[in-house]
Design a protein around this nucleic acid. Sequence first.
DNA 1: CTGAAAGCGCTTACAG
DNA 2: CTGAAAGCGCTTACAG
Lengths: 361, 361
Amino acid sequence: MPKPTAQAPAPASNGRPADAKPGKRVGIRDVARLAEVSVATVSMVLNHNPKITAATREKVRRVMEQTGYQPNRIAQSLSSKYTRMLAVILPTVRHVLADPYFGELISGICDRAERRGHKVVLEHAKPDWVRDRRHLELFDRRFVDGALCVGFNDHHGFLQDFGKNGWPMLSVNSEFPQWGIDHVVSDYAGGADQVMTYLFQLGHRKIGMVHGAFEIATARVVCEVFGQRVDEAGLGLDNTWLEDGLFTEVGGRDACERLLARHPDITAIFAGNDKMALGVMHQLALMGKRVPDDVSVVGYDDLQHAAFVNPALSTVHVPLYEVGVRAADRLIELIRKRTDSVSEVLPTHLKLRGSTAIAPR
Amino acid sequence: MPKPTAQAPAPASNGRPADAKPGKRVGIRDVARLAEVSVATVSMVLNHNPKITAATREKVRRVMEQTGYQPNRIAQSLSSKYTRMLAVILPTVRHVLADPYFGELISGICDRAERRGHKVVLEHAKPDWVRDRRHLELFDRRFVDGALCVGFNDHHGFLQDFGKNGWPMLSVNSEFPQWGIDHVVSDYAGGADQVMTYLFQLGHRKIGMVHGAFEIATARVVCEVFGQRVDEAGLGLDNTWLEDGLFTEVGGRDACERLLARHPDITAIFAGNDKMALGVMHQLALMGKRVPDDVSVVGYDDLQHAAFVNPALSTVHVPLYEVGVRAADRLIELIRKRTDSVSEVLPTHLKLRGSTAIAPR
DNA sequence: CTGAAAGCGCTTACAG
DNA sequence: CTGAAAGCGCTTACAG
């Protein structure tokens, strides 16, 4: 195995210029001295203050480069208003971090935060964490400038605490109209509407809905759209065509079983997320129903996985990564007071694959 | 929907005591004044300095409680040596954050870090991030006190930079003997050994190995154990019984196909991780082989998922969450100089489920 | 056991 | 356009 070369010529990028006192990191005053300007000037160069001449700026820049100077961000934060840190707060669901839904959102958040010079700290909102008001401590003790909350529901009343205390917080891909919380979400109603239009076009009239928990606003929205479209079409489908699938594979499977027991003539099932849709497909296979020949299945989310099942799942594409990106952007604007309220909706669209077909007969 | 009560009696935990100047947060000097001690004393109470009398401590504590005082951690960090932040550095693999392997590790890290008063910041080691030496900036600019690296391999030479600069860093569940990097890992050799012993006991003699990439030390180790045990047993299995499965489902599937094309009489397949094992099982089903009647399959990792496939996967349990916990613990010790070198190995053990059985014939 | 003072390394008015 | 000085909110020797 090739041994790595022990030492590259090593530029002064380790923070110790040849001409600095040994054992001492180079600070802003070293740079000022070497560049023959004041520390205020160096600071202004650092902060892209337009008052500085191009010439001075270059002179200072050169010294910073030569000395490998890196501003101490702790000192910067103490003097300035910002920490340039964002918190991502997650609920304590087992394996949140192993869930592609969260993975996509967080990836988007991290990438954009990084690009805009912010770091991301991860927090789990455990019951005692909230009880001890650690969520406020995040701001009170100046850990972060803002927070992004992902995956919470109506039972998480603590979300209101941020706004009450004037701290920038954004809910990511879930909304809380009852609490007036800023948010960046995707268009769940629009996606559901497209699904219904599409199923009608295919001739489906006996449509079941497997929904997620109603404490989640977006789940309610999807159900409302379902109910509305079904009523408008005069299909006469009552509540027995809706089942709670708990947002899980197993829940979806069981919901499907109940649905078919009641309505063996069902020709299409709309699931509130892809996980439940996979559970539904699993159950249909067990019951000897072919997808899509006998029953069409539509999911919601468009997780990576959904394209690789058999048949590939028709679903609503939710731009999770992009939602994360926009959320980071908007939170930073909120922090800088470039805006004082965020309510952004990103479009969703139908992703047609193999699990849907014309209604039988 | 029940409206949340608008306002609880609200203790002074919002950081603004009734008797403080309005608009000003309570600081250490306010506490000192109200408690009739010096700021030094308050600071010492804050830091559990044993020199402080119980009486004084209580007096100060009471004032802190009444005023809702929270120390500004930016100021604390500037004055002290520590930021109490840890970085978790991840490779740029698409969907790292949606991978249960990483999810478990990171959960362990976050939980323990939190318990020990540390926050976790997430970093993606993109090529240009490393090129711009942002990994060193993490320390140079005092973002964190230490770093935990997860999921890297022999191509990631930048891992050596931390040690060269004296920054605390730990590799989590991967090791780099060639670079002498501190690590907390699980016992891959031991697990592989148990698998081989078990397969021999079941009477298997024609055993195939689907391994992961060799730039990962643990993958090499598993293969070495496989080769060694097979040689010791005098089975005469050459390299044609090994196939690279790329650590993915699809890779495992393809590797299985190649293996069976060459050795149709194979009775057991050992896969280097669960993902590949699932791919193997998938392929076996396609080829009309029954698991475990015709071919036994063993995985490695024991991801949540492995217990829920059909038949449930026999695999090596890797205590990922616990590895994360220990890594956080040891890193903090490294930071506090309680130790100066970490090389910890957590035990693995066989988890027997339905995918293994006595060799046919 | 406690206090007065210096200092951590920056930014930000305020002068010039 | 640049500089001298105060200040951010703590901790840490150093006296007493």
